[in-house]
Design a protein around this nucleic acid. Structure first.
Lengths: 357, 357
DNA sequence: TTGTACGCGTTATCAA
DNA sequence: TTGATAACGCGTACAA
């Protein structure tokens, strides 16, 4: 019978396991962390004792003793945004059976909130940190540089990584989407943007760059709002854009929500897509391929970003120093009916609409 | 100058703050947790010392000493599902400036995984637990009953709550959606369901109940799949349903993804909505009001569920024993064009489509 | 209101 | 390979 401590949680401890197995506490500790270093005989006795007692390791005691928690702090700007929900899913799936836990913080696209949460996280001496984007405040950046653990900036690539980095170029994505519209013959290409966080800004810069190369930048064609993105906002921005430029024949949307809103608004107003207006989205959510007409979009590897971030962290934690600190996962323009100015009706309606590219 | 400990993290501790402020450690501890109980003079001296040292409290040490972590364990079946992403958002927003942290676990709709994660969480002696639904395994239920902290079952209501409960009736939601279709004159009403988790099953039961009352249940009209829900799955299930029952004139969809897929498929096949087929969704995601035609859906208060769960936990944690352990937040049928068999074109296209109800 | 002594459950250190 | 002992940083109990 295990001795009842005076103040404890009442749960069995390492010492209880040790005395039941007839070994020292440190041996149990080792058997748990590094089974190789304990003889198979003791390992077996310990396993039996753990099972009999229903012992569960106390992560707080471990963290206190080792000055290191098995926690990865994740700072993400939004939960409503499907894109970040998928990043989170990738992160969780990447964990697999490792003992790492995720501590999650929602910055609401606010750099001050990001710094506040970071300080909270740092208090736990996390095993690693994941932050979104590359536009941290200078003070935040310094905190991350001296965090003493792997730090991954995700969803973007850029110069001067704090430590590790995995993402892709939003500038190139915006540029390629715009170039595609130019190629299919659009002449009056609008840009629709909501939220306009730094990544949105870079997509817009890519749009400007493409039109600049074609010699036709026009500020009137750009319609943005700091408000959050949504399907209804897409419809609203499109109406605004149309009233400013009735001859609009193509729109690059900041993301898929907006693109879907544009499509619905076109349906509502009887504007034919792609004959009169072509639409390009961003992220390529699942519904884009199923919409009617199906919507062209820039496919971004957000699930993979999450997985890759964890993979890099696990590698760093096991001592591997990767030569590749910055991983560019790229993106892929998925061309569909909304920018294909031929007879879209010919396509067979399939469960998953094939990319025409 | 603080003495350098042998093994520590190098960060300032409560003792460092105490010696700098010229007080005992316990006074600093109290100043942090319960400022009222420390004289304003010492409070001020302590605040200065904390600031000068850049002190951050070590939550692991606190958890170890008090046998209680400021962590709320949250078990949710899916991250891809918008609905649960919004619950999570409600939970985070409900936290406000409290010191509580969220530890999140994704059960992937698997009760065994739920139990495994619960055991991990329990290891930390969490301040509270939130679990999804009411269909825990018997062993899981026992673990929760003896967890020694507030437990909230969310997203559903039902008999025999483990402790606290906040949600709504999926049976009633399914039933009301179906009754609505009967009222607008549909005679051959199909049910489309994906995933078919327990809550989906109860919506289906509600559908059956409504049709039973009308005397017309027909298994052929029910089309389900255990696969995850998606927009493309909605299109696929609708094609299946149509091939089984070409005279289908209404569909109750298990959720909005499916409903949107049905709408796209109707557009694609030239099936007019609502003239030939009426569509009802479930959850009322933002896009439902913007779709063309706009889609009728059962609005569920998922964000509010998250907030309410935290509110109940915070109340319980501060000693308030609520007389209301079970909170039914209800739902609301939002009637829109997809079930309004009049001239839908008359409506003014607005930023937010008004509910006709 | 404030302080002292000790325990929380684990790991690092060092010795065997 | 294994173990005794002393931290880890904070909260509780009790005393002042």
């Amino acid at each position: 019978m295990a001795t009842r401590a005076r103040r404890g949680s009442g749960r069995p401890t390492l010492a209880d396991v040790a005395s039941r197995a007839g070994v020292g506490t440190i041996t149990v500790s080792r058997a748990l962390r590094d089974p190789e270093r304990v003889s198979s005989e003791l390992r077996e006795r310990i396993a039996v004792a753990i099972d009999a007692l229903g012992y569960v390791l106390n992560p707080n005691a471990r963290a206190l003793a080792s000055a290191r928690a098995d926690v990865i702090g994740v700072l993400i700007p939004s939960l409503t945004n499907n894109v970040f929900a998928e990043v989170l899913r990738g992160i969780h799936d990447g964990l697999g059976d490792s003992a790492l836990q995720i501590q999650f913080g929602n910055t609401h696209y606010c750099v001050d909130e990001e710094e506040r949460l970071l300080r909270v996280f740092l208090g736990q001496r996390p095993a690693a940190l994941i932050v979104s984007g590359i536009d941290q405040l200078p003070a935040t950046r310094r905190l991350l540089e001296t965090a003493g653990c792997p730090v991954v900036q995700i969803m973007e690539t850029g110069p001067n990584p704090i430590d590790l980095m995995v993402g892709f170029s939003h500038f190139d994505g915006g540029r390629q989407a715009t170039e595609h519209l130019l190629q299919v013959g659009c002449r009056r290409i609008g840009f629709l943007g909501a939220r306009m966080d730094p990544r949105s800004q870079r997509r817009l810069a890519g749009y400007r760059s493409a039109l600049h190369s074609a010699g036709t930048v026009e500020e009137l064609l750009i319609t943005t709002t700091p408000s959050p993105s949504s399907v209804s906002m897409g419809a609203y921005l499109f109406r605004q854009a149309l009233s400013k430029s009735p001859d609009l024949d193509g729109v690059v949307c900041n993301n898929d929500d907006l693109a879907l809103g544009v499509l619905f608004e076109c349906n509502r107003q009887g504007i034919s897509v792609p004959q009169r207006v072509c639409i390009v989205g961003y992220n390529d959510l699942e519904m884009m391929a199923v919409a009617y007409p199906s919507l062209t979009s820039v496919r971004t590897p957000r699930y993979e970003v999450g997985r890759q971030a964890i993979a890099m962290i696990r590698a760093a934690l096991s001592g591997e120093r990767p030569e590749l600190a910055v991983v560019d996962l790229g993106f892929e323009l998925k061309v569909r009916e909304s920018t294909t100015r031929r007879q879209p009706k010919e396509r067979i309606a399939g469960l998953s609409a094939p990319a025409l590219q």
